[in-house]
């Protein structure tokens, strides 16, 4: 198997709606993490318009017009921004029908969250055969993790809620690539995890020499995301690593709480180790956890419009 015929078989392209044609090749048998990394360059890039707008939002002198000028030529992003803006999750009092009004009514942090979600939908609303996940599962899981991260940020006064939101939204992006490139090896991973009692991360390492968190962080690196987000995604399943910084710990905990609530859980399920010190590190109590889960779930079910967006991006 060469990289050339892999490219031909895999058919990655973007159409005007940013929908991606990413079909796993079930005949592949000889993949390793090195092979996957070599081929990551063939992935579509994260929407440049969103990245440019995110940069502009970090500049206090940026005006609504600057943002509109960057986003208006990307119809898919514009559509997703408007639909998310009008969803209950972001709770504007009036229905918004054009980009300029949307951008002028939203706060900067809300705008960053909406932009990240708008840009991410095409990637995280895909069926993942190897993980037994339907198209809505990864989108729902990612959105719920991002909502939970947001609520957790408020509970412990985390100073970078938007950074955590972005990391939470894209934390499982590596699963897309594993599903795409690993072919028959996904069955081996699944068998090691489900029949032989290994954690999913251990099974991924045994078969590939890396896991979906490592692959996800490499994708984020190629997409030029900030170092702290890359690191948190890299760490989110590694109990020894995520305990070492707050962003990683909070991402790990948000993901754990969403799995506990059964939102978008696939075949990997609960096959992970949790650091026993995680709650102590974040100084969060058992009762806080119950409340965070309750708030997350309420907000999750109130975000129905946003949760349905996966349908239009498939």
């Amino acid at each position: 198997m060469t990289a050339d015929n892999m490219t031909a078989d895999t058919d990655i392209e973007m159409n005007n709606n940013m929908a991606l044609t990413l079909e796993p090749d079930k005949d592949q048998h000889d993949f390793t993490l090195d092979y996957i990394f070599e081929n990551l360059t063939q992935l579509p890039t994260f929407p440049k318009a969103v990245q440019k707008a995110m940069e502009l939002l970090n500049n206090p002198n940026t005006t609504t017009k600057h943002l509109v000028d960057v986003l208006k030529f990307d119809p898919a992003i514009t559509t997703n921004v408007l639909r998310l803006t009008n969803s209950a999750r972001f709770g504007l009092a009036q229905k918004v029908t054009n980009l300029e009004t949307a951008l002028s009514l939203l706060g900067r942090n809300q705008l960053k969250e909406i932009l990240m979600a708008s840009g991410s939908i095409p990637y995280i609303s895909r069926e993942l055969y190897g993980y037994c996940m339907r198209p809505e599962d990864l989108w729902h899981h990612s959105m719920a993790t991002a909502i939970c991260a947001d609520i957790l940020s408020k509970y412990i006064n985390f100073e970078e809620p938007t950074t955590l939101f972005t990391a939470a939204l894209l934390h499982d992006i590596g699963k897309i690539v594993l599903n795409l490139y690993v072919g028959g090896n996904l069955e081996k991973i699944l068998e090691l995890a489900t029949k032989e009692g290994y954690s999913f991360t251990e099974a991924e390492w045994m078969v590939l020499g890396g896991d979906h968190a490592v692959i996800g962080s490499e994708i984020m690196n190629q997409w030029d995301f900030p170092e702290d987000i890359i690191k948190a995604i890299r760490n989110h399943h590694d109990p020894d690593l995520y305990i070492q910084d707050r962003l990683s710990s909070m991402l790990a905990l948000s993901n754990i709480l969403v799995i506990i609530m059964g939102i978008g859980v696939g075949a990997d399920g609960f096959r992970y180790w949790i650091n026993p010190e995680l709650l102590d590190a974040l100084k969060i109590t058992r009762n806080d956890i119950y409340e965070v889960m309750f708030e997350t779930y309420k907000e999750f079910i109130n975000s129905k419009d946003a949760l349905m967006l996966y349908k239009d991006n498939n």
Binding site: F270, I289, Y290
Partner: peptide, 14 residues
């Protein structure tokens, strides 16, 4: 009541 392999008791909500 799915449960993780190991973790703090506080997170064994199931």
């Amino acid at each position: 009541v799915g449960i993780f392999f190991e973790g703090p008791r506080e997170l064994n909500i199931g």
